[in-house]
Design a protein around this nucleic acid. Sequence first.
DNA 1: AAGTCGGGGAT
DNA 2: ATCCCAGACTT
Length: 354
Amino acid sequence: MLEKILKKTIHNQLESLSGWDEQKVKKFQQNLLSWYYDQRRRLPWREKPSLYGTVVSEFMLQQTRVSTVLPYFERWMKEFPDFKVLAGADESDVLKLWEGLGYYSRARNLHKLAKQIVELESIPQTRAEWLEFPGVGPYASAAISSIAFEEPEAVVDGNVVRIFARLFKDQREYKGTAEATKKMATLTQSFLNLDNPGDHNQALMELGATVCLPKKPLCLICPVSECCLARLSEPEAYPTIKRRVKRQVIVSRVFSLSNRKLLLYRHPEDAPRLAGLYELPKLESLVIRGRPRLLFSRARAISNEKIKEMIYNTDIADNDLPSGHSWVNVCNIDEVPMSGPHRAWVMELISKQD
DNA sequence: AAGTCGGGGAT
DNA sequence: ATCCCAGACTT
């Protein structure tokens, strides 16, 4: 049975799978799990596991490192301790707590999910059911159903792709992480430990995050290095995933402070980016008075753009502001959700003016 | 299938 | 400066 799956999955695309029988897979699972129980990090969502904590952590951890998530998770669980409290919260408060974490649709989707959950008679358990919730995709549905309900669903995230690509010296060139994830799904499912699906999944991700690193993997302390083909050659060479080039973008923005009020722009609720969040307004969208004075310029990257942002100081013709623009009292600036870097710049500039 | 969404830590 | 992170959604 397993052999059949392996043969079909690997075919001739990965290096030899000879030797992989049911016994070897079992051994792999045991080595991995023993290592996990012995060496895993103590993370807050693992201490007193709950469905809610699992869901929140899985949302926050999408494309985001554990170390980045930690302070956000603690604050979140304190402010929104369960689905019910979260469901009853104002969206602006939800966004405020997510401020700086990025991918803000995650916060909105998590909020929606909570509202849906509290209306249900019973909590869904299967992967297919979780897949229906907003913001829950192939990865998160497998993670939640396996970790919270021990459903036999294998997760495939960046860590898992890297581990399996190295185990079998996967020579395929993937066009992106999406393709790699999809093509790896059958193989990872055949390696799933059916006795402990949740811990098996977490163990793989823990291994990828702490041992099977993208650069300089720690093969010497890896619990499954005997099974790993790349370990004998160049582990860093796997997997091979094509990355797209970032395009250069230049944006000019306005810092205008008048009578202890700062002009800000709030992205519309249905905006594709930063929906509901405040930023410094763009220079081009305003009618200004006099010549703008360059305060500073900063470079950052979001998604597939390299952005150079130029911040100007100028006076604004404030009798007829474009929609979305408003003067925010600096006393209340802490209350509004704002994109992370802009928050830092604004605080820096305000303190400099005093 | 390809493009888009944030931000930061590590190298 | 580049990579990549417990991915999902829209086009």
